[in-house]
Amino acid sequence: MCECCGNGQKDIYLPQMATITKHRMLNGTEFYMHLELDSGKELGHTPGQFVEVSIAGLGEAPISISSSPTQKGFELVVRNVGSLTKAIHKLTAGQKVGIRGPFGSVYPVELAKGRDLVFICGGIGLVPQRSFIRYVLDNRKDYGKVTVLVGTKCYDMRLFREELAMWQERKDMTLMETVDESHDCWDGNVGVVTTLIPKIESDLPKSLVLVCGPPVMYKFVLMALSEAEAPAKNIYVNLERRMKCGVGKCGHCQINNLYVCQDGPVFRWSDLTAVPEAI
């Protein structure tokens, strides 16, 4: 029997409180925060999932979980785009937000064992991908070659720069980065993330490919992957939609018959090729 109602059923809309333990700006628009649930329990997520974050009075929004379940607490990255996210940007350590979830489908953490993995991240698509990347790095011996492609619109918007620098140094993974627009401080690749795909050294037809980025990116990345003969059944995409309730009721996140909040956000691309609203 739970305390919120008398019939033993949980109120699926009632958030639990979580406290911010660390926070910082990752760039001009992205706010990082590390949180711990006030219950003292772990969130219990699997890479790929999201939570509904709320500040009472301002509303609730779906936010990808950026941390690996192998670490204590959990991390979120929030872009300043509206009244709720603007208020989240003003929060400091010790302050609280409401959390519901974790919700949604997960990356194939088990199926991926022993396989070469290629992560293709566009912009804030790095945020949810990082959950699985860090999980893989924390269980490194379980997985094959790890390749991470990161494309960012401009140099100033790069996320997790210190972490990317550490990944760059690691001998057990390959990081390739590009920015869309050239910049005085940037001497790396210039061009969209698809320009990195021909440089992947893993055997693409046999690798698992994980893709997350802005809506416009998928079509081009999937075309490039198809040319590189990566089979659709080995590709996973992590999709964004308006997930208002998170529990498959409100209807906002539907892509045709699928509910992104429950059937997704992580989909096997071969399951979506006949779903016209997907990409």
């Binding site: 809309y13 009472a56 509303g59 208002k244 309730c245 009721k249 409100c250 209807g251 906002h252």
Partner: peptide, 25 residues
């Protein structure tokens, strides 16, 4: 039965209600 969820703050600006309201596709 599609719905939106919105926060409505009371006139005291201290308390409020999270409501579910009809939406339309």
């Amino acid at each position: 039965y599609c719905f939106d969820v919105q926060d409505r703050v009371n006139w005291d600006l201290k308390t409020g209600t999270r409501v579910r309201c009809w939406d339309g596709c």
